[in-house]
Write a protein that binds this DNA or RNA. Structure first.
Length: 700
RNA sequence: GGGCGUAUAGCUCAGUUGGCUAGAGCGUUACAUUGACAUUGUAAAGGUCUCAGGUUCAAGUCCUGAUACGCCCACCA
């Protein structure tokens, strides 16, 4: 054995060896207990980032379960990541001075498809470099035809059970990306604006958006506000920039009588609160801003102006007409921004497909409350329930080309929608064939929300029955709501079962100072560079060592170096034992105090017991800490030192005990540091053997 | 405004149902060793465990309150 463990000499070789031996190809084996994890599919639009390195927790679980003799499956998959990917791709196009409008739908789709296929390869090789024991023989992609079939089936089932409906309502629309988004793809930011106080018929109102005045269809006051009782229910005439118009005065609880004058102008088409009021009060909806973010033909001379310019112009013109009372400058308020491009989100009315959430959320809640799905760390159970309580209907339509096209067909003669995986041959109502397919694609989360059962189904019924529900869903706590909860909702809807028995949520990877990584801060670390420098074992272990489960973890050189040193220490323990193993048996060997051996055995038994307990409770950091301290500061620093002389003089009892306990510890350590442990194993037992072979494992 | 979380050594973090003479990694200091390992060993310095009350024989650990920071949710015309 070398005097140092050099990761680069082993990593690729061992990875190939594991794949070749098929250790992690999931098979139906009724004699064994199944243990399955579905990899949260990385977005196939770039390369691996530090967050993906946290999948190490899944690898620990998979390797541990393999070692204790379970049949494991860690299913590899990738996500097409609809709007995300299209956004990334369009940025590339823009660099070449082009835009998505330069291409027709089919061409654009094909271009993105090629782009994604290229990235898929990159990501897979990166996952492999981290030593992840995925089942490389069964790769899934969210746009695989078999997956799409399942997604279509779920959509139809939801529709048939009245849990999908089409509605014309306000959506979050990004006029730059040209698509609507769901509610939490909008980030609210504090922004300084101007608050305009307007003369508004008999009232005075305050607004940050005077340009929406053309879409006003009502004016609201609080029902108990004594100042305005006489007006409620009446129609009043308002002087506007392009002449007078009439609105109805309504009384609504949503109005805060203490804010401003206690009077609100209602623009149902361009403000969410106003939209809700209009629904309650039966006020008409009048769209005056189009999907490019410009004022439309209902705004007279303002037609074609973008929102920002129109705001200033309308303000000026109202002032000229004596309708502007005052402007409060530097008025700080919160504005919705597109989470991708940062542009202000425009609430616009649009016809879209929605999932009715309440029944789905209720059944998901029940599963969680009954612990059919368990959460680690435990605090997320309560958080999950709270989030489910607040879930609102889910807009699943996206106006992007890249995605799974919604299988909905509109019959132009009957004006009816039909849900069907393929274009219907004729209309059920009119017998004509006059269909047009919905242009939109599904929200990515609609397909990834079906991931566990959809992927397993494509492997056949027996396979599905064996591995579903999966054992653990391990992912970042940031996608509890958009992904984990949706999987529970859609999974239980489609299969009648929870898609996974346990949820384990890890924290975020930070830089060495504990700061969030971001391109603008320039503190982004590429995990693969760390692997190049220090080895995969070291990078993996550094993400686990000394960090409470679920907490954020700093990815820092000194932490990785410490783990590289540990790997080397373990290697050298083996080297020392091996050197003496080759000396072997002498008759005049030095004797040893048997108490030392008893003490060593006892310490090991305790270590093993605690290890098992920690692994069972998902306390990965503690289990690792245990091995770290036992191996380094007991086994090496105390026992090897104490037993050095007997060992070197050929005491076979000592040699055998040290060997046995050392190998046992390699097994315990293997889930955390697969490469160094396997490399050592092979140094002792030959390169055609593996620590992963069940025959090698007797005592964990 | 609602919810959650965190405050422990210079830095990054552990500390399970209260028993701690409070630990680890990195850093610092001294010494040792090229004898499995300098990616090493031995030892040392360094903490009124954010603050104020309370429960208890006993509190970093439980309760109440305060302060600071972080996250999630709702979103103000």
């Amino acid at each position: 054995m070398d005097s140092k463990f050099v990761p680069t000499l082993y990593e690729e070789k061992l990875n190939d060896f594991w794949v070749k031996r098929g250790f992690f190809e999931g098979k139906v084996d009724k004699a064994k207990k199944p243990f399955s994890i579905i990899l949260p599919p990385p977005n196939a639009n770039g390369s691996l980032h530090t967050g993906h390195a946290m999948f190490v927790f899944e690898d620990i679980l998979i390797r541990y379960n393999k070692l204790i003799g379970n049949e494991v499956l860690w299913l590899l998959g990738l996500d097409h990541a609809g709007t995300e990917t299209q956004f990334v791709f369009e940025k590339q196009l823009n660099k070449q001075g082009k835009s998505r409008y330069d291409f027709d739908r089919e061409t654009l789709f094909k271009m993105i498809w090629d782009f994604v296929m290229e990235n898929k390869g990159t990501i897979k090789s990166q996952l492999k470099r981290l030593g992840f024991a995925l089942d490389w023989s069964k790769e899934k992609f969210t746009m695989d035809p078999e997956i799409v079939k399942v997604v279509y089936r779920t959509f139809k089932d939801l529709y048939d059970k009245k849990l999908v409906y089409r509605a014309y309502r306000l959506v979050n629309y990004c006029t730059k990306d040209g698509t609507s988004y769901s509610d939490y793809e909008v980030n609210y930011e504090e922004e300084a604006g101007s608050l305009y106080y307007l003369k508004y018929g008999p009232f005075e109102v305050a607004t940050t958006r005077p340009e929406t005045i053309f879409g006003d269809t009502g004016v609201a006051v609080h029902p108990n506000d004594k100042r305005y009782q006489e007006w409620i229910g009446k129609e009043v005439e308002i002087q506007g920039p392009i002449g007078p118009f009439k609105v109805r005065v309504v009384a609504d609880e949503a109005v805060d009588p203490k804010f401003g004058t206690g009077v609100v102008k209602i623009t149902p088409a361009h403000d969410f609160t106003d939209y809700e009021i209009s629904q309650r009060q039966n006020l008409p909806l009048k769209q005056v801003i189009d999907f490019r973010g410009k004022l439309n033909e209902l705004t007279g001379q303002y037609t074609g102006l973008n929102v920002k310019d129109a705001r200033v112009k309308v303000g000026e013109d109202l002032k000229a007409k004596g309708l502007l009372i005052k402007i409060k400058e530097d008025y700080s308020h919160r504005v919705g921004k597109c989470y991708k491009c940062g542009r202000t989100i425009e609430p616009l009315p649009k016809e879209q497909w929605f999932v009715k959430i309440k029944p789905l959320a209720d059944s998901a809640k029940e599963l969680i409350e009954k612990d059919e799905v368990k959460f680690y760390p435990k605090k997320y159970k309560r958080q999950a329930i709270q989030l489910l309580d607040k879930y609102i209907d889910w807009n699943i339509s996206r106006q992007t080309v890249w995605g799974i096209r919604i299988p909905a067909y509109f019959c132009k003669s009957t004006k009816q929608w039909f849900i069907s995986p393929e274009k219907p041959s004729s209309c059920e109502l009119c017998d004509k064939n006059d269909f047009v397919q919905d242009e939109d694609t599904f929200d990515t989360w609609f397909s990834s929300g079906q991931w566990p059962f959809a992927t397993l189904e494509t492997e056949g019924n027996e396979f599905y029955e064996y591995f579903y529900p999966t054992s653990v869903m391990e992912t970042g706590h940031d996608i509890l709501r958009p992904w984990v909860l949706r999987m529970i909702m859609l999974g239980s809807f489609a299969t009648g079962k929870t898609p996974f028995k346990t949820v384990f949520l890890h924290g975020m990877v930070r830089d060495k100072k504990g700061q969030k990584m971001s391109k603008s801060k320039g503190n982004v670390i590429n995990p693969l560079e760390m692997v190049d420098k220090f080895g995969a074992d070291a990078v993996r272990a550094s993400l686990v060592f000394g960090i409470k489960e679920g907490a954020d973890v700093p990815l820092a050189d000194d932490r990785v170096i410490a783990m590289r040193n540990f790997a080397n220490k373990v290697w050298n323990m083996g080297r020392f034992i091996k050197i003496n193993d080759e000396n072997s048996l002498k008759k005049d060997a030095a004797q040893v105090d048997s108490k030392v051996l008893t003490q060593l055995k006892k310490e090991f038994e305790q270590e093993k017991k605690s290890y098992q307990k920690y692994m069972k409770n998902y306390q990965f950091s503690k289990a690792f800490d245990l091995i770290y301290h036992f191996l380094w500061h007991s086994f090496a620093d105390i026992y090897i030192e104490k037993l050095k002389e007997p060992l070197q003089s050929g005491n076979i009892e000592v040699l055998n005990l040290l060997k046995e306990l050392y190998f046992e510890n390699l097994k315990l350590l293997h889930p955390y540091m697969p490469f160094v442990t396997e490399a050592i194993w092979q140094e002792f037992h030959g390169t055609d053997t593996s620590i992963l072979e069940v025959t090698a494992v007797k005592t964990i």
